[in-house]
């Protein structure tokens, strides 16, 4: 069985995908249905959930459901975009290390090891503070702190690919390493790249929500973390507006859970030798 069919039959993967699809579809449906944007102040501040406003309103009288449905997309976008960046860097570094082995591998992997044990939040906070928050800087920063994990995964996978018969045959025939990398390795990377993107998305979303919660993300974009930042700024929990804190937080948790499940499914079907 191929990797993809194994993953797609894994119940964990199916459950994760179902949660993710459910969340995005509800959010999409609300965006199509609702007449408001996230900037419209449509009612009195701090209205509790009702039929008109299923998740109530915030401190400026904006519909929280609208904010959240937009936030889900922004959060996922930041997560996916940075994960794609992470996977790209990871692919390059990982394949390089695995193909050339020797000193290159040793140096790259020592750096990766080291970067992995520096708390990513600290580096991300410092970099965001210097680069100034905008959505693209946030993506860039997440990619900077996220690539080592991906590189390690890709390297391990590449090493197992290198042992495949056709690669060994090609090497025996005297093909250059670059040729092998381009011809045999990279094209067979799809599963690991997809896997790496999803794994990266999880970490990226957690980091993005954290940065936004602290008010260091792009505060113009309504992400789930940003909603929490503004809710906290207006003391929503104590003012009785629990819906402003509870629902966005729950949504982050759901999305992370879905991605965790998918990650698990991928990890246990990849069978990468460490």
């Amino acid at each position: 069985m191929s990797f993809a069919s194994r993953v797609s039959r894994d119940p964990l993967f199916q459950a994760g995908l179902a949660i993710l699809l459910l969340v995005t579809l509800i959010a999409l449906a609300w965006r199509l249905y609702s007449p408001w944007t996230s900037k419209d102040m449509v009612g009195a501040p701090f209205q509790s959930p009702s039929i008109e406003h299923p998740l109530g309103t915030d401190d400026l009288g904006r519909d929280v459901m609208t904010l959240v449905s937009e936030g889900v997309f922004i959060t996922l976008f930041v997560g996916l975009a940075s994960a794609i960046l992470i996977a790209t860097i990871g692919l390059l570094v990982g394949v390089t290390a695995a193909v050339f082995r020797g000193l290159v591998d040793a140096i790259l992997m020592r750096i990766v090891d080291f970067l992995l044990s520096i708390p990513s939040l600290v580096v991300a906070l410092i970099l965001v503070a210097i680069l100034k928050p905008s959505i693209f800087n946030v993506i860039l920063v997440i990619a900077i702190v996220g690539w080592p994990a991906s590189a390690r995964l890709v390297r391990a996978y590449t090493l197992s690919l290198m042992e495949a018969p056709y690669v060994e045959a090609s090497r025996a025939l005297g093909s250059s390493l670059t040729h092998i990398a381009l011809r045999h390795l990279i094209p067979n990377m799809t599963p690991i790249v997809l896997g790496s993107i999803l794994v990266g998305t999880r970490a990226a979303i957690l980091l993005e929500s954290g940065l936004s919660f602290l008010g260091l993300g792009d505060l113009e974009r309504v992400s789930l973390g940003t909603i929490l930042f503004y809710a906290r700024r207006s003391a929503a929990l104590i003012s009785g507006a629990y819906w402003l804190i509870v629902f966005p937080g729950l949504l982050i948790m759901l999305i992370i859970l879905a991605l965790t499940l998918i990650t698990l499914a991928i990890e246990r079907n990849l069978k990468v030798k460490e």
Binding site: R31, T37, E70, F73, I74, L76, F77
Partner: peptide
């Protein structure tokens, strides 16, 4: 706002 729509469409495409 135009960029908002673009971002959301972009996500949709990716998903």
């Amino acid at each position: 706002e135009a960029p908002n729509v673009a971002v959301i469409a972009l996500i949709l495409v990716i998903v």
